[in-house]
């Protein structure tokens, strides 16, 4: 290895979660999708009050319990054991989704297969003929929350771009995504397409563009 080769290390999952959590202001009501976004809850800076919502009727979801303190009636939407924070509340499913669909959540963070430059998101099925596709609450969250951020790797495992001109997978919602946090960059969805807010250190704009199908713009 010669020292003329630029070094660029993509963000780890934890670093991505920390980066996203940094942007959540105090007082927001937030739903974190199953999978990668779940980790964001553990990364909110100490002393900042953010209230987490889970679709199965939990408002004020806390971290996972200690092994000897599991409460068998207390799970989140990913069916993992969780806790309730002081001030939390239980509601039934219709009220829980009224919070979502009624525009009461400040933020939803979802994972995605693809995000298009017009804000379309595809995150629930990988083909039109998926065997038994499972949508869960993704369509309600994407259409209902005040803002939708996506947290995902910039490309697929085999290097295909996930930030695309038009989604090829079945859509979850039209024009819903406001911002995308990847392991390479933070990008806003604007009327002109993706605007790069920041890139991971050591990565050039041209290198980021090379890993992105949609045309990138510089923010600001």
């Amino acid at each position: 290895m010669t020292d003329t080769v630029a070094t660029m290390t993509p963000l780890s999952r934890t670093q991505m979660a920390q980066r996203l959590a940094h942007d959540i202001p105090e007082g927001w009501y937030v739903n974190l999708g199953i999978g990668m976004p779940t980790q964001v809850a553990d990364c909110v800076p100490a002393g900042r009050e953010v209230i987490f919502h889970s679709e199965n009727g939990v408002l004020g979801m806390g971290p996972a319990p200690a092994k000897d303190a599991v409460e068998p009636w207390m799970i989140n939407a990913g069916k993992q054991y969780v806790t309730l924070v002081k001030g939390g509340a239980y509601v039934h499913h219709a009220d829980s989704f009224a919070m979502i669909r009624g525009g009461h959540l400040d933020l939803c963070v979802l994972g995605a297969f693809e995000v298009a430059e017009n804000g379309d998101i595809a995150n629930w099925a990988t083909s039109e003929n998926d065997t038994a596709p499972a949508v869960g609450g993704a369509m309600d969250l994407a259409a209902g929350a005040k803002r939708l951020w996506v947290m995902m790797d910039h490309t697929t495992k085999d290097g295909r771009p996930k930030l695309v001109k038009r989604c090829s997978y079945p859509l979850t919602a039209l024009g819903a995504v406001r911002r995308v946090y990847t392991n390479l960059a933070v990008l806003d969805v604007t009327p002109n397409g993706f605007a790069v807010v920041e890139m991971c250190p050591g990565l050039s704009f041209a290198e980021l563009q090379a890993r992105t199908e949609a045309e990138l713009h510089k923010a600001g």
Binding site: E55, H93, V135, G136
Partner: peptide, 14 residues
């Protein structure tokens, strides 16, 4: 199989 978004499912029953 009828796939229904979870919130739509709850609201349809409500």
């Amino acid at each position: 199989l009828e796939i229904v978004p979870q919130g739509t499912m709850a609201e349809r029953m409500r």
